[in-house]
Design a binder for these strands. Structure first.
Lengths: 226, 226
DNA sequence: TCCGAACATTAGCCTCATCTAACCCCATCT
DNA sequence: AGATGGGGTTAGATGAGGCTAATGTTCGGA
């Protein structure tokens, strides 16, 4: 094996997928483990082991003694590039092609690998250089600082508070559709009416309507106390 | 080997590329040979041999005794689908994202594999169901009849004729840029002033300007005598 | 009639990305 | 202490898609 050099690995779609997923897990403060990555990429754990070995050899990820996975500077730069394309595409699909916010994640998963730099710039410019995608996720700039900033989950807010939605996890398209139909999207302000104990729902008021959101839903909605 | 069934092959990007190239060569009336396909797909001839074997086994292409390659009904349907996405994307990139007609072929080569049916329909609808792409190539309908209709090349038109440009081959982006800068694009009407012999240029008049087009250029421009 | 060029195919090898089955390490519970 | 189980990894296989080098095959020209 020769000296570590990030350019020795092909920028295949698989590599981009793994990098984006690692970036996503890390950004949410979740443990970045072999099995977590396997689940997100939808492959078996040994497949991840093999890929991580290659990513490590190409200096894109680093691993501590305790199996801890993190992106190197190089790795993070690439991951942010893929994430930027992903989120720009999502925004584009909603704003220009009229798709709904629950449809775009799957589409963007494929398109993010097919967008050239030139195209990325055109899309960015047609959209007026957006800072956030339809789920409220911040779009990393082409170069420069970027923070993922996952704020408080709705599930952790006490009753009686007003809560401004900032981000909604884009993973679960059924959840997105459900929430969207009830007006729960970035920018919306909810009133947290009450919280049932023992994994029960959170009652929220959106405008005049009340909704009971189960723990799964309450966890995908993030924001701040307004 | 089991009975031939078109669905036994994965619809990978490579398969789509080969099908589209075979469709393109056949549509232009060019010989569809192993080496012609190899050149168009940018791979070595043995790679094409191997792929053709698979395509034949999946009933997507048929081959005569004399090595003649043709698409089956199934193969043609798939090829037309890929071609439709390719040309819709090209049109979209020009009309919505403001790319130039010499840039879009390369981009579409990647994007054509990443467009879902849903997305294809949205693009089609946003563009108002276009019938031709920016190079004048007809966009195959989602289903139904389609003809490729490569009419007369400019190189075969006698001096003294007026010539209406219908299609310009999208392969060579340098040629496209050169022609575009001189106003030679689908819809333009040229006057064929004179033809130099021995592979010399064709002199054409576009509006008030004259241009000498070498045999390569004169061959990529197709149309009809006006 | 024979020879060489052009073209297709076979043979043999490689990488990427995936799988299942088996194994190992370590923490925990009995 | 020993059994149990969860995660990670190794081993070994597979299929897609690509390569080069060698081997037909066929056809036109000398």
């Amino acid at each position: 094996m020769r000296p570590l050099n990030c350019c020795e690995i092909a920028h295949t779609e698989a590599v981009e997928d793994y990098l984006r997923v690692i970036f996503k897990l890390a950004g949410r403060g979740l443990p970045v483990t072999t099995s977590a990555v396997a689940e997100q990429v939808s492959v078996a754990p040994p497949t991840v082991s093999a890929m991580l070995k290659r990513l490590e050899a190409s200096n894109l990820v680093a691993r501590s003694a305790a199996h801890e996975i993190s992106l190197t500077t190089h790795g993070e730069r690439h991951a942010m590039g893929v994430t930027r394309r992903h989120r720009l595409v999502e925004t584009f699909l909603v704003q220009v092609l009229g798709l709904t916010w629950d449809e775009v994640h799957t589409e963007a998963d494929k398109l993010e690998h097919a967008i050239s730099d030139r195209l990325e710039d055109r899309i960015d410019s047609v959209l007026g250089h957006p800072t956030h995608d339809p789920h409220g996720d911040p779009i990393p700039p082409r170069s420069g600082r970027h923070v993922e900033a996952w704020s408080v989950p709705l599930g952790g807010v006490a009753a009686g508070n007003r809560f401004r939605v900032q981000r909604v996890a884009d993973d679960d398209s059924d959840a997105l559709r459900y929430l969207g139909e009830r007006g729960i999207r970035p920018g919306a302000v909810l009133e947290v009416v009450s919280r049932e104990p023992f994994g029960g729902p959170v009652w929220v008021k959106v405008g005049a309507r009340r909704h009971a959101l189960g723990p799964i839903l309450a966890d995908v909605v993030h924001g701040e106390i307004a």
